[in-house]
């Protein structure tokens, strides 16, 4: 198991954002997290990356309890995320954004940076080369010198993925990567995530685009009002009575089928 969520709960001043949720993700799979707005999906991401600490429960990553570990330590361990409402370093070039992503995989400090030691120069070159490769992967190489804020919306989403990949994660958390994308962009996103999977990176994805989720994910968990409603393969989820009733609703049924 790459990630095990064990009986995790989170309260915000008496409101249960998450209640006793458990699931685990296997090495190399694409795992979907779906549910209506306010079901607690992003809260789950925030708990995994310890932006908040869970009120109770445990989060285990590669057999190591990472509950309460500092955010930047968690990134070092190999979990990196993107944000639902894009959080790029808007005044930095695309290339630099991705290079910042490589922070936890590099080590030069003040001294080596100022005196440009051999090791530091090598490291910078590698960071840059790696960043350029990732930009090629997400199709932004031509735009590497543009400021992040000047990129188109879909490009910004892909840049965020490249930035997260630069931290060489074992587990990648994607928070609604297809939001605001057109059909063509969504298709290329599908390809991109499949490539990421083929590199041996496990993916946990929150997404509202049901056709994409069903096509992409190996397994899916459904959250509703902070509780896990169901878990299973896309086929099982689509045929789960409770899910259809509580979440998918009548109008979306046809779309999924």
């Amino acid at each position: 198991m790459v990630l095990e969520i064990k009986n995790v709960s989170k309260n915000f001043g008496g409101i249960h954002a998450l209640r006793n949720v458990s699931f685990s993700i296997k090495q190399g799979e694409i795992y979907g997290l779906i549910g209506p707005n306010g079901a607690g999906k992003t809260t789950m991401f925030n708990l995994i990356t310890n932006i908040f600490e869970p009120s109770s429960g445990e989060i285990v990553f590669n057999d190591e309890n990472i509950t309460g570990l500092k955010s930047h330590k968690i990134t070092e361990k190999g979990i990196c995320r993107t944000y639902q409402n894009i959080r790029l370093f808007s005044q930095m070039s695309a290339l630099k954004n991705v290079m910042v992503g490589g922070h936890s995989r590099s080590s030069s400090g003040v001294f080596s940076s100022v005196f440009r030691t051999k090791a530091q120069r090598k490291e910078e070159q590698e960071l840059e080369k790696n960043a350029e490769e990732l930009l090629k992967l997400v199709g932004l190489f031509e735009n590497k010198d543009l400021l992040a804020e000047n990129l188109a919306y879909g490009q910004q989403r892909r840049l965020e993925i490249a930035r997260a990949l630069a931290s060489k994660p074992k587990l990648l958390l994607l928070d609604e990567p297809a939001a605001g994308m057109n059909e063509k962009e969504t298709d290329s996103l599908y390809d991109l995530i499949k490539i990421i999977q083929s590199k041996g990176i496990t993916v946990l994805i929150i997404e509202h685009d049901m056709p994409l989720v069903m096509k992409l994910c190996d397994r899916i968990a459904v959250l509703n009002f902070g509780e896990k409603l169901a878990e299973g393969t896309p086929y099982e989820i689509q045929n789960n009575e409770a899910v259809i009733e509580a979440y998918l609703g009548k109008e979306e049924e046809e779309e999924i089928a």
Partner: peptide, 10 residues
């Protein structure tokens, strides 16, 4: 530019 994003980049 973005403290939180910086932290989640390690």
């Amino acid at each position: 530019m973005d403290e939180k994003a910086a932290e989640s980049m390690g």
